[in-house]
């Protein structure tokens, strides 16, 4: 399972970085989304992967660390808000300059 998760994080990061380096705002936005997925998976794994273990302490039962799950939840909420704002900003840039190229409509 570790190998699968590591590959998933790696592929998501690679795709995210590739898209972020594109010159139009829409692929950049998608790239950031993919990167945040990768980061969330990575963060989730920082508490170690365990099967059939709830994030609850009970006598005798095995449990998984609940803190990374709380961190991931916070990170998802923040990342989602940021991405929504970036989408709005990119749309405004498109409306104002007529192009979604990241350097479009530069003065000088």
């Amino acid at each position: 399972m570790e190998a699968l998760l590591a590959i998933a994080v790696g592929v998501l990061t690679a795709c995210g970085v590739f898209l972020i380096l594109r010159a139009r705002t829409f692929p950049v936005l998608l790239g950031l989304t993919l990167l945040s997925y990768a980061v969330n998976l990575f963060l989730f794994a920082s508490g170690r992967l365990r099967l059939d273990a709830p994030p609850l302490l009970r006598a005798g039962a095995s449990y998984t660390d609940p803190l990374p799950q709380a961190l991931v939840l916070t990170a998802i909420v923040i990342g989602f808000g940021m991405t929504a704002y970036l989408a709005m900003l990119a749309l405004r840039g498109l409306a104002e300059s007529g192009s979604d190229h990241v350097d479009a409509g530069k003065e000088q």
């Binding site: 972020i20 950031l32 990167l35 945040s36 990768a38 980061v39 969330n40 990575f42 963060l43 794994a45 920082s46 508490g47 803190l67 990374p68 961190l71 990170a75 923040i78 990342g79 940021m82 991405t83 970036l86």
Partner: peptide, 15 residues
């Protein structure tokens, strides 16, 4: 946003 992603990776590694 890229900086935040790196920040989270660093935090995950630290934890």
């Amino acid at each position: 946003l890229l900086g935040s992603a790196l920040f989270l990776i660093a935090l995950g590694l630290l934890y």
